[in-house]
């Protein structure tokens, strides 16, 4: 038993800083996935070829959407892996409890999520560089990214990645509770898709997608996402809090 008393804030801060140093490899996976997304985005750039008796027009589209999509997926995977044994064991290097561990994990996921969001938004320029140097596209048609667009985009991507991290964390907590969830969660998702297809109705997953991605009011979107994040982390904490130490 330690005689030294440490406040919750100090414990969370120490664990958070340690996780930021120790888990630097999450950025490696982010870089690899974003590079993969560049390749997908580049391969998918030719959308139309219109031919008449005058012109054969090839229309190229450059989009950073695949990179953003893959960054969100990376958030989900990172959220799950944060609760794997290799990661959680490091918590016990410090004086800790479930609350400080969860809070430091949330802060860690938020920090890497923010870094992922900034990288995803900046990567648009890399795609444009490819357009400039590989496709020789010296003139592009479209709307340039303004500073306002960049900050709005980064904030929204950060919210999406944070939501994915929170969902991943919740899945990780369920798996920690019982390993059967490793099979149960994919089975439920695939089963729901098959059930909806058999019933000839919109898939539940599409309704979930619509709930967030088809929300055009920024204020309502922020409320929806923050509420979902809080709900996921709260549920995860309640699950983890019932478990034995180091389980």
């Amino acid at each position: 038993m330690s005689l030294a008393e440490i406040s919750l804030g100090a414990a969370v801060k120490r664990q958070f800083l340690f996780k930021m140093k120790a888990n630097i490899d999450v950025y490696s996976s982010l870089m690899i996935m974003q590079l993969l997304a560049f390749a997908i985005s580049y391969g998918d750039r030719i959308r139309y070829a219109v031919r008449d008796e005058i012109f054969l027009s090839k229309v190229y589209y450059y989009s950073v959407d695949p990179v953003i999509g893959i960054t969100i997926f990376w958030g989900l995977v990172t959220g799950i892996t944060v609760l794997t044994k290799g990661y959680t064991d490091t918590d016990f290097t410090f004086v800790t409890n479930r609350l400080s561990s969860t809070l430091s994990n949330i802060l860690f996921l938020a920090a890497v999520g923010l870094a992922g969001a900034i990288m995803a938004m900046l990567s648009k320029n890399v795609i444009l560089l490819v357009a400039l140097f590989v496709d020789k596209a010296d003139v592009l048609y479209g709307s340039p990214m303004t500073a306002g667009d960049f900050f709005l985009g980064t904030a929204v991507v950060f919210l999406y990645v944070s939501l994915a991290c929170a969902i991943g964390y919740f899945i990780g907590a369920l798996v920690k509770l019982n390993k059967i969830f490793v099979f149960l969660i994919p089975a439920l998702l695939i089963g729901s898709l098959m059930f909806d297809a058999a019933q000839d109705q919109w898939p539940l997953l599409f309704k979930v997608y619509e709930f967030y991605f088809h929300e055009f009011s920024l204020a309502i979107f922020v409320v929806k996402v923050l509420a979902s994040i809080i709900l996921c982390y709260l549920a995860s904490f309640l699950i983890l809090n019932r478990m034995e130490i180091r389980s």
Binding site: F55, S57, V59, Y60, I68, S143, V156, F216
Partner: peptide
């Protein structure tokens, strides 16, 4: 002869497009 023209477009990112007035 038929002229080959390459046209390059850049789109706004979907998180920006989601909340901006539709063009």
């Amino acid at each position: 002869k038929v002229q080959e023209v390459n046209l390059y477009f850049v789109n706004k990112e979907f998180p920006v497009h989601q909340f901006r007035e539709k063009e």
